[in-house]
Design a protein around this nucleic acid. Structure first.
Length: 573
RNA sequence: GAUUCGUUAGCUCAGCUGGUAGAGCAUUUGCCUUUUAAGCAAAGGGUCUCGGGUUCGAAUCCCGAACGGAUCACCA
């Protein structure tokens, strides 16, 4: 911890000490029982005044308006904010006015957590407030909170620096009300999906995060090492292959909300760890899954926002089922005019060239088609749209299309120009699956470092027989972004990945103690203007003495003035 | 990873073509018994992100680094 505290931090530590001196524990151990909260009071008081004659609530002081013997402050609890009214002679019934004059007015600050007991009333300005009879300090805050003020919907001095907000999410949550609501919605969305699945009788399961073979998706994994077994392990990039093993094992429907990890770029739609929901249902195909997915999303939107419609930037998106469906080949035809259904790899390269789509030699047919779609079609799909029937090369875990073996029974759900969900009629033919993995190995040999590894145990499970199954994965973070109107993933993750915080280098008191400075003086050297040992040594002893004793006088330090011989001793060392 | 912009008080930001730092809120001290971005009066608070360079003199100009934002590439 730094020895250098800002003035405001010093003031708060001083207040802490004064509280101790008054016999007040600023961090009391016992529970504080509340009997209501800000939201309930504001909502129910007008219709039932008598129920609020003895309320007890607790929370954080967010603003104070002190006027002599009476004051107002705003208390923020988990449900919202409410105004408190403190009157000196009501807080302090006897002659001793310490609790008001000293504790409330001087020792409490914005950010402190208190509990209060009192009765609810309406001020002359018409605001429902609590008239405080007694209060208790529950936790003293030692750092000043960024103060956000608001009037007529206009926000002043908002705490907006993204770096600070993401690194100190706790402060962000305290001060920026909308942030809390985003995360409450996130949980609502997940609960809503979970209820939907549970109602159908599907089983929520957990599968390994540490995997010996990172299968189920094409992505670069994070690697780690298990010491006891002395083997490499990977953080999962997907959980697909494990969930399918469970379908082999005889469950009709399994699902998992999973943190997946991908060692790739970070930007406003990608975080190295992210949440995916994957579900697998036996005896179904991708057509059924499309119906299921649109029903689920319609319900989730309705339960979260009270409407199937949601706004993101200037777009309005409607989750009302059914969604549009179009095959990837038809989509490319529609947006580029090219029919790529019969094209060879070299023909596809020509088309890419004509369309100005970048390619590289490692790309096979599937990736080329995907590149065209990604660049020319994807961004057109603002309203929820199922893109179906992807080429076989880019879908190694997906069953071949019943009408065309070059294609697969796969769909991706595009919303607001982005992929939100991905689903297959799962490939359950073990021989075909083995061949597909081998093709992936060939792609890998061509330099595609995202092609899949072969998971022999997964193949063995398929050889025991997996029922026809459809599976679907949905990016929870992106869905939350859509349903909360956020455009960056960092806004829907409590703690997005950041570069490690820079440790402020600088001298510590110890560095000065090394050269013989007494402990008492060492802590004052930096504030007095000596920011390095070298700087101190470069000065003349008389100049140092003048400076330090000047500092001592200015800050009224309770210690003797420093003497020349002491300083000369430092300089000799 | 590339390009680009940014980093000044606890927070939000000014600071013109280089002359040694300002505002509002927050803090401290007064006054104020129903205010509401409370008000009035006064005060304190800054290694101008860091390291070099140019200069008599750098928050300001130049070079480099760190961190962050935006865009692009890869990907969900």
């Amino acid at each position: 911890m730094s020895l250098i505290l800002s003035e405001q931090e010093q003031v708060r530590r001083g207040a802490l000490k004064e509280m101790h001196d008054l016999g007040i524990n600023p961090y009391p151990p016992e529970a504080y029982e509340i009997n209501t909260n800000s939201e309930a009071i504001l909502r129910d008081f007008p219709s039932n005044e008598s129920a609020f004659q003895d309320v007890c609530i607790a929370g954080r002081i967010m603003s104070r308006r002190i006027m002599g013997a009476a004051s107002f402050c705003e208390l923020q609890d988990s449900a919202g904010r409410i105004q408190l009214y403190f009157k000196r002679d009501d807080i302090c019934l006897g002659e001793d006015k310490t609790m008001y004059n000293t504790v409330f007015k001087r020792l409490l600050d914005i950010g402190d957590i208190i509990g209060i007991r009192g009765y609810v009333f309406v001020t002359q300005m018409g605001e429902i407030s609590v008239h405080v009879r007694e209060f208790k300090v529950l936790s003293k805050s030692l750092r000043p909170l960024p103060i956000v003020k608001e009037k007529d919907g206009q926000i002043y001095d908002a705490f907006t620096d993204p770096e600070q907000r993401y690194r100190m999410r706790y402060v962000d949550l305290i001060v920026n009300d909308a942030v809390k609501h985003t995360f409450i919605k996130r949980t609502k969305i997940i609960n809503s999906m979970r209820n939907f699945f549970n109602e159908q009788g599907y089983l929520e399961v957990e599968t390994p995060i540490l995997q010996p073979i990172p299968g189920g998706a094409t992505a670069r994994p994070f690697m780690t090492h298990h010491n006891a077994l002395d083997i490499p392990l990977y953080l999962r990039v997907a959980n697909e292959l494990y969930l399918k093993r469970l379908i082999v094992g005889g469950f009709d429907g399994v699902y998992e909300f999973a943190k997946d990890f991908r060692n790739e770029g970070m930007d406003r739609t990608h975080n190295p760890e992210f949440t995916v929901m994957e579900i697998y249902v036996a005896y179904k195909d991708y057509n059924w899954m499309m119906d299921f997915t649109e029903r689920m999303l319609e319900r989730v939107a309705l339960e979260t926002n009270g409407s199937t419609k949601t706004n993101i930037q200037t777009q309005e998106i409607d989750f009302k089922a059914p969604f549009k469906r179009i095959s990837i080949i038809d989509s490319i035809k529609e947006h580029t005019g090219f029919d790529v259904s019969q094209s060879s790899e070299s023909e596809l390269r020509d088309i890419c060239k004509k369309l100005g789509v970048d390619t590289d030699p490692a790309m096979g047919k599937g990736k080329l088609i995907d590149a065209i779609f990604g660049e020319k079609c994807e961004h057109h799909y603002i309203q929820p749209t199922f893109i179906t029937d992807y080429p076989v090369e880019m879908s190694p875990l997906c069953k071949r299309h019943r009408d065309n073996p070059e294609l697969t029974e796969r769909f991706e759900l595009m919303i607001n120009g982005k992929e939100i969900a991905n689903a297959y009629t799962e490939l359950n033919d073990p021989i075909d699956q083995r061949n597909r993995f081998e093709e992936q190995m060939n792609l890998s040999a061509r330099g595609d470092d995202e092609a899949m590894f072969i998971d022999q145990d997964f193949l063995r499970s398929l050889e025991y027989g997996m029922p026809p199954t459809s599976g679907m994965g949905i990016g929870i973070d992106r869905l939350v972004m859509l349903l909360t109107g956020n455009t960056t993933i960092q806004e829907v993750l409590f703690f997005p990945q950041m570069r490690p915080e820079k440790i402020r280098k600088g001298v510590s008191a110890d560095d000065f103690i090394q050269i013989g400075v007494s402990t008492d003086w060492a802590i004052h050297l930096v504030p007095a203007g000596f920011v390095s040992v070298e700087m101190l040594l470069a000065e003349k002893a008389s100049a140092i003495q003048a400076k330090l004793n000047g500092y001592r006088k200015k800050n009224k330090l309770d210690m003797p003035a420093i003497q020349m011989d002491e300083i000369e001793a430092w300089l000799k060392k």
